[in-house]
Amino acid sequence: MDWTTLPSLSALRAFAAYAQSRSVAKAGAALNVSHAAISQHLRALESDLGVALLDRSGRRMELTAEGETLARALLDGFGQIATTVEALTGADATRPLQISTTPTFASAWLMPRLSQFREKHPEISLTIDPSATVQTPEPGGIDVALRYGQGDWPGLEAELLVRSPIVVVAAPTLVGTREISSPADLREYHWLQELGTNEATDWFALHGVDRDAGHGYASLPGNLMLEAARAGRGDRHHRGDFRGAGRRGRAAEDSL
């Protein structure tokens, strides 16, 4: 490697911090420098590379295609460095294992198993974020994300936790005595799905049914979705496999 061809490390750090936060002020706070210093580093890096990394034509500064490419490389590289340093110094050993999952899965599957996990791993502290917001596992942040999906998430190691059948349910007050013999018979109902998922859309697509968009969907937190389904305000369904995905190098999720 020709080290003399690389841009200033300070400029690369400033650009990576900006790319991660998409804010000059937040990048400055993360690196403990002024936002003016971040702006100077960004312009110096573009000048050094001879490439436009930022599009400043709009009201908000955005990364160009070249900027996105460099940002991915830097964040991956700095992430690996941070992980290695934590492993060498032991700084990561005492930090709680941070888990992100949906509220319904947290209450119905994860919580009943925590006592067993504590018995096996009393030395591991846990922080559980029951939110529909999808957060990317990264060094110093979320370690494990439990989500519905096929497990083909780039850059993450995924392990199947629960395989469950697809079940469609509705309150008797909603469907009455109507005979339902095929997925197409459910097109006219308003559907409920858990916030942060696209289960209803996937279910109809799986059965080759063109969903009538005029009846729409309602995306709700898990507990509200159950209450709405029981009250006859729509159909509710449950689908698919639940998988745990985490950044490489952090263990213990397989014991949950």
Rank of each mutant, 00 (worst) to 15 (best):
T83C: 09
V169W: 08
L146W: 08
T197R: 00
T94M: 08
G151M: 08
V168T: 15
E159R: 15
I128L: 15
P96W: 05
T94W: 03
P103G: 10
L161R: 13
D143K: 02
I124D: 00
R187L: 13
M111D: 12
T133I: 11
S125G: 15
I142W: 04
P139W: 04
T104P: 01
E159S: 15
G149K: 06
N198W: 01
D92H: 10
L192M: 07
Q135V: 14
E86K: 06
P137D: 05
H121A: 14
E159H: 14
F117R: 02
R178Y: 03
G176H: 07
H190L: 13
A82L: 12
T104I: 12
L126E: 02
R147S: 14
R95N: 01
L114K: 06
D202M: 14
G79H: 05
W153L: 15
L186S: 02
E179A: 15
T197K: 03
G149R: 05
A106W: 06
G141Y: 02
V167Y: 03
V167P: 00
L195C: 00
L97P: 00
S100Q: 10
E157W: 05
A158E: 09
D92T: 06
L195G: 00
Q98L: 09
Q135C: 02
L146D: 00
L156K: 03
P139G: 07
A91P: 00
A205P: 00
V168L: 07
V167A: 13
L110M: 15
P112Y: 07
Q98I: 12
T83V: 14
R147Q: 13
Y189L: 13
S107L: 12
T102A: 11
D129V: 13
W191Q: 03
Q98G: 00
E138Q: 14
P165C: 06
A132W: 09
E138R: 14
A171Q: 07
D152N: 13
